[in-house]
Design a protein around this nucleic acid. Structure first.
Lengths: 162, 162
DNA sequence: AAAGCTAGGTCTCGTTGACAGACGCAGCAA
DNA sequence: TTGCTGCGTCTGTCAACGAGACCTAGCTTT
């Protein structure tokens, strides 16, 4: 416990190695998160995704290739009886680790952007069926009460701007 | 407690009212989350953001306008001594509620995309200085252990596809 | 073996959005 | 009057998206 910290001078740390920007370079391309939503829901095949989402073929091709290239998805061969070998897309560990991102986005969207009848998709705990949410907690185990209780700080990779 | 649930038939619920897609229509535009990162870090003025991020003027103008229009930011007048009135951009409640999203993205980026020296930015608990993380927890209070313990389900707004 | 189906992948072309750089503009100061 | 500041807008170029048609490998059917 160090007492209340004060914000650092905000303009002094750089931005070119920003991990948020890098993450969003992957996740922020149009349709990428929608593809991930489907994959998390067990949709693994090109045409299933395309039909469900309406993503143009080329774009879907690009997104899947990019996600595979970034190690979020992996391409696995499968074979339906009496058909040739095809490939499906499955989450890697790196991909599964996007679950909190997906749920955080869904939670925000559900709160502010849902239709009156509610969101079309929810996430529940497999063991008890209760809705899953994300919560902020600090490494010392304190639950973060208000959002003002979080303080952005320069991290180890921060370097001053010229 | 209902025992383990089995996944629903995945192809049967629709997608056009998806709150994830709607959220990403706001957050997924290029640079939007980077702008938010700055605003959360206390950067509130056009040129400060532009210099720090390198976002082209037009794009920054568009993003700020879009975020204001969506109610994520609000435009507040301020006046430096001996200058005319200008406007700065501040988070609304709706914007502050994006904190879990921002931290979830940062956490994933930090884990997989950071430079060897570490990320340039971290989020700490204002009271104790410990790093803030997001965690998944269900409404019954169970911490979600593995990521396979979450099950996507059709929600109240789900409607079948034709 | 010829023809057709399936689950994708590829090509083309029109439209939108990003980027860089220059210019405009409302106050305030000199 | 001129210049500075903090934005905003205009212009032209290039990449990405969107719609639709066309291609393809391997299987089945005749």
């Amino acid at each position: 416990m160090v007492g209340h910290l004060t914000p650092p001078p905000a303009l002094e740390w750089s931005v070119d190695n920003c991990t948020i920007a890098r993450a969003m370079a992957i996740l922020g391309e149009k349709w990428t998160v929608v593809v991930l939503r489907d994959v998390f829901s067990g949709i693994r095949r090109f045409d299933d995704m395309r039909v469900r989402t309406g993503i143009p073929r080329q774009v879907l091709t690009n997104r899947l290739a990019a996600l595979v290239e970034h190690g979020v998805l992996r391409r696995e061969p499968y074979r339906e009886p009496g058909a040739r070998v095809r490939y499906e897309y499955r989450l890697t560990e790196k991909g599964l680790d996007l679950y909190p991102v997906l749920i955080a986005v869904a939670e925000w969207g559900d709160r502010y952007l849902a239709d009156p009848e509610g969101p079309p998709l929810s996430y529940v705990h497999r063991d008890c069926g209760a809705e899953v949410r994300v919560e902020m907690r600090c490494a010392d185990g304190h639950d973060i009460d208000g959002k003002r209780a979080v303080l952005p700080q320069p991290g180890p990779g921060a370097h001053r701007r010229t």
